Amino acid sequence: MTTGVRGRRPGRAWGAAVLAVCALALAGCSGRAVADGSGGTGTGAAPEATTTVNPGPQKGHKPTPKPLKSLPGAHVNIADRQTVGVGMPISVTFDRAVPTAERADVERQLKVTADVEGAWSWVKDRNLLDGQRVDFRPRTYWKPGTEVTVRAGAGITRHFTVGRSLVATVDVRTHSMTVEKAGTTRKVPVTAGAPGMETWNGTMVVSDKATKVFMNSQTVGYGDAYAGYYYYAVHLTTSGTYLHQNPKANTYAGHQNVTHGCVGLATDGTAKRFYDEVIPGDVVKVVGSKDTVAVGNGYGDWNLGWEQWKAGSALS
């Protein structure tokens, strides 16, 4: 079964506890991941390359020559030397909320080096306080093969690569998913959220995946509708939206939407094939549904237009 339910005080010193932006133990059809897997790339048109160091929303912005300050309690979502999909934002979270008056100074300590036009924007994460998360995304999806370096203050440096492009578009009206991967295209029958339990509309980004996830309907207000393990689960939102194997898809994929909000794939190898090829940062777009997924519900950054995104910077 699946689901896609809609449902301290700001401080200056940031502690040591690590906060995960998209943990597996979340409300929704998520639960406890037993076996984890990861991989990665994505797709989309990239902007004309321009060499930009710490690209920001202001034209002509240049990096400060001063050494970076320390940002205690800062955490970056991408591991060093990781390969990610074209939709992956750089997300920096903090152990405690950054007061509004200090956010511009914090942004000045965040440096991105890449051939891309991009900007930072403060995001209200579903599971964090306002001021605990700031993301960087390009104007359009990353170009495959882009090499990126990100520095968060004086103590954190990450180098990562954007892999091949993969964008999967789920049309809930036709019960199908079109997978565009590195210049190839194929269609896959799916079943999405039933009426009243619709799958989120809009653009989502794969945060992680697991071969086996325990899902419990009681965590999302659906009573005893389901409780058990589901396989080949690709994680899309913090609220618990997954794209995963679902036995009901053997009957309904391509014909009818019957899930509790997730996207279901058949057990004939269809789900495993998609699972095996996706990596964190790949893009899953849902069209024809209701209620666009919130920016802070996982990596929903792409659901804002470029001008809206830039307006979320403290330097704008």
Rank of each mutant, 00 (worst) to 15 (best):
D130V: 12
N303L: 10
D125N: 10
V167T: 13
G221C: 08
I279A: 15
T41N: 08
G254S: 12
R103D: 00
R8S: 12
T191K: 02
E307K: 09
T203H: 03
K143M: 11
L71M: 08
K66M: 11
Y232L: 12
T113M: 14
L315S: 09
W142E: 02
G264N: 10
T184S: 15
K209C: 10
A253R: 06
N54A: 15
G193R: 03
V188S: 01
T100L: 07
G44H: 00
V98F: 01
T113L: 14
M215D: 09
E117H: 08
T50I: 15
W122G: 04
R186V: 04
P99Y: 00
T64L: 13
K124E: 08
T52A: 15
T241G: 09
D130F: 11
G31D: 06
L304D: 01
H255C: 09
D135C: 12
V284F: 10
H175L: 13
G183K: 02
I156W: 01
D291M: 15
A16K: 08
A27P: 09
G193S: 07
G288W: 10
C29E: 12
K310Q: 08
K66D: 12
V53G: 08
T83R: 11
V284Y: 05
M1C: 03
T2P: 01
T237V: 10
E48F: 15
P47H: 11
W306E: 11
A114V: 05
A227Y: 10
W309R: 06
P63C: 09
C262Q: 09
V21A: 10
A35Y: 06
H260A: 09
G264P: 07
S217G: 02
L26D: 13
C262R: 07
W14E: 11
P55M: 12
L315A: 11
